[in-house]
Design a binder for these strands. Structure first.
Length: 119
DNA sequence: AAGGTGACAGTTT
DNA sequence: TAAACTGCCACCT
């Protein structure tokens, strides 16, 4: 497929937002997993950086479903209200303790796995 | 235009 | 074992 002249619209950030919006309710994923899914596994930091602007995206991006690879809620400080991230996750059925998702692996959602389901 | 930044992740002390 | 160091790269000023 030929490249479109307007492909510039496909920013790295936008791709990140797309993936994050695919995360099912009650599931979480990591920055690294998203970066890998987008083809640049070494750009995990950028994924986090992208989430900084996620609050002004339309439709909203469920940024609370993205944590680091240890299941730690490293980005909770960037939410409007304190503990908002934690509250949102709990509301989706997860349990949090000391900013860490309990039984993290059980709730982990790998974007790559989603790809397999659709091929 | 060039250099600084960071909601990470892997490696080394 | 845990803390510190470093690579990383798209975006921002």
């Amino acid at each position: 497929m030929a490249k479109l002249k307007f492909e510039k619209h496909n920013d790295f950030f936008q791709q990140v937002y797309q993936v994050v919006r695919l995360i099912p309710k009650g599931k979480v994923t990591s920055y690294g997993a998203i970066a890998k899914y987008l083809g640049s596994a070494k750009s995990s930091r950028m994924v986090g950086y992208a989430m900084n602007n996620s609050h002004k995206q339309i439709p909203p991006v469920p940024a609370h479903r993205v944590v680091n690879r240890n299941g730690i809620l490293t980005g909770k400080h960037f939410f409007a209200e304190e503990n908002e991230m934690e509250r949102l996750l709990i509301n989706e059925g997860l349990s949090i303790k000391d900013n860490a998702i309990q039984n993290f692996e059980a709730y982990f959602w790998d974007p790559g796995q989603y790809l397999e389901l659709n091929q």
